[in-house]
Amino acid sequence: MAEVKKYSEEELVLLLQQKDQQAFSYLYDNYSAAMNGVIYRMVEDRELAEDILQEAFVKIWNNFSSYDTAKGRLFTWMLNITRNLTIDTLRSKGYKKQAKISGDENSVSNFTDDGRMAERFDAMGLRKQLLNLKPEQRSIIDLAYFNGYTQDEISKEMGIPLGTVKTRMRAAIIELRKMLEYS
């Protein structure tokens, strides 16, 4: 912890392609808590979540050559791996894929969980912003992005026609982006 090096996403990608462990350590420090948060929401078991997190990072390390910057941000790719691994793990363990539909507070209530939040972020400020998202807007984002639901599953879970998933998702993400654009 003597010096904290910062990398741009481009630098990070380049170094990770060369199997640079210091860059990997940085990657872990910056993204593990967010990924762990997603996994925890899917499995609701801290130990299992951390096991999956570790396995996900091993895969990210071993498969870094398959990351293609043209397909989007690094985190998106990492989260895809993580979400698929979590779903596979839940299936192999005989768990039923279970969603937690956000109630008014539910979706952001994990903030206070154990007090072990990532403190680099202005979590409280962000939390306040996100509370302005309507519960159904959070739900549709959460079900897809955090829980890996399909359009069909979302339509059933939320009781909305399949055809409206797209328009609802767009509206929710537009709202989310509006909310995050504070500076």
């Binding site: 979540a49 951390e50 570790q54 939040m117 990532a118 972020f121 962000l126 939390r127 996100l130």
Partner: peptide
């Protein structure tokens, strides 16, 4: 869109136990 979603995920972050990083490496 991805940047927005990334920030959304970061807002739900839960720090894993420090031992996870040791085991990973």
């Amino acid at each position: 869109i991805q940047a927005g979603l990334e920030e959304y995920a970061q807002s739900h972050a839960i720090a894993p136990a420090p031992s996870v990083k040791e085991k990973l490496f």
